[in-house]
């Protein structure tokens, strides 16, 4: 209610599979983003992060739960009712090479939101697009180029310009740097940081790269197998992770020093989302599993800012 730009409760996405099995890609996710903050959503590949991104923007319909955007539940709105709301929420994709139509010029791609939403066309659109390109650090001469004439970093800047065209409030970034060269990654991250400050944007930043999240985000939510297992301020989570999965994730990126043995890596694979184990979903791989974990599913609980879904915490 108060100040939340986006509030997600009990969000679920289920896919029916052959043989009557149900794949629970997203299984009861709660999120809350206040205006101006940056929330990182981390987890292994296949844990449902990108599905959450598409659900929040209503690019795919949810199977259950609430998505409150600016106080309004958009979970079941039709495409026509969503159209005006789309001005306020935009997405940047992982792979800039496929996020731009290869047949359209930079101008056509960046102007598309303006044309679709009926904001401006013709000379006015050209002026706006030029301004957007300048904002993302590209020269006006790029207007009439095709995507194949640009580098990965330049393409990603064009995608950012397109996402900014309608002056959105919420920007969902789905692994925005993982397809780029390391040197370009840093540039784009710095640029995204700057942008958030200058435009007062709210970020939902999806990544599997903890170092990136640590640099960009205020808060972190750790996702495992379709659900959030730990959530809290970025420094708290990195300094004192309470969920064994978070500990394993953080342990897996710290450079091992010869003086100390690295923490044991996680054994086993992520279970199939069609066969989520009963009780705590992390129990089969958990190093500190107890009797209780196999029967009872822990809920996300804790003090106001730092919450964990673990019986041992």
């Amino acid at each position: 209610m108060s100040g939340a730009l986006l509030e997600v409760r009990g969000l679920a996405k289920r896919y029916a599979q052959k043989g009557g099995r149900v794949l629970r890609a997203v299984d009861g996710v709660d999120l809350r983003l206040t205006a101006g903050e940056s929330l990182g959503l981390v987890g292994e590949s296949g844990c449902g992060k990108s599905t959450v991104a598409r659900l929040v923007l209503r690019l795919i319909p949810p199977s259950g739960g609430e998505i409150r955007f600016q106080g309004r539940d958009i979970a079941s709105l039709g495409e026509d009712a969503l159209r005006p709301l789309r001005r306020d929420m935009q997405i940047i994709f992982q792979n800039p090479h496929s996020a731009l139509n290869p047949r359209r010029t930079v101008f056509a791609s960046v102007a598309e939101p303006l044309v679709v939403q009926g904001t401006s066309r013709g000379t006015e659109a050209q002026a706006r697009v030029t301004e957007l390109l300048r904002q993302v650090g590209l020269p006006e001469s790029f207007l009439w180029r095709f995507p194949h004439e640009l580098s990965g970093g330049q393409k990603q800047r064009v995608c950012i310009a397109r996402a900014l065209a309608l002056a959105p409030k919420l920007l969902v970034l789905d692994e925005p740097t993982s397809a780029l060269d390391v040197s370009v990654q840093a540039q784009i991250l710095d640029f995204l940081q700057e942008l958030r400050g200058s435009l007062g944007l709210t970020y939902l930043f999806i990544s599997h790269n903890l170092a990136v999240v640590r640099q960009v985000c205020d808060r972190v939510a750790v996702m495992y197998l379709g659900r959030i297992v730990e959530e809290g301020p970025v420094e708290t989570i990195f300094a004192a992770p309470r969920h064994p999965y978070t500990r394993a994730l953080i342990g897996s990126v710290l450079p091992p020093r010869p003086s100390c043995l690295p923490e044991a890596a996680l054994a086993g694979d992520v279970p199939n989302a069609a066969e989520i184990p009963p009780g705590c979903r992390f129990a089969p791989r958990c190093p500190i599993r107890m009797e209780r974990c196999l029967g009872d599913d822990p809920a996300l609980a804790g003090d106001g800012s730092h919450r964990v879904a673990c019986w041992a915490a």
Partner: peptide, 11 residues
């Protein structure tokens, strides 16, 4: 993704 991006702007 470019089709998804078009959908995301309401095309």
């Amino acid at each position: 993704p470019f089709v998804e991006a078009a959908r995301a702007v309401g095309a």
